[in-house]
Amino acid sequence: MKKANTISYRTMNAHFDLTGSEVTRVGKYYLISRIAKIGNYGGGPGLKYLIIVFITHYLGRPLGWMLIFFEDRIRMLLRKKRAKG
């Protein structure tokens, strides 16, 4: 009883995920739903989406750094690509 009100976690964790409802849990649901899936879950998460979301949360930081460092070059490339049509 004490534990639930004293141990503290940030509501958004360091991976920009929901504390206590992390994306790993969606993965667990995905596995269980392969065995017993009944009800309206909007088609479920989909393996491809799930992997992308997982990568974004857990490898997103290095990805963010890369995007920042190469932002100008990426923009330039995209502009050239657009200009070429």
Binding site: A4, N5, S8, Y9, R10, T11, G20
Partner: peptide, 15 residues
């Protein structure tokens, strides 16, 4: 806004 909170708070917020 994102301060350390008790786990019950997070259950209220996310669930």
């Amino acid at each position: 806004e994102n301060q350390p909170r008790p786990s019950l708070y997070n259950e209220g917020y996310h669930f």
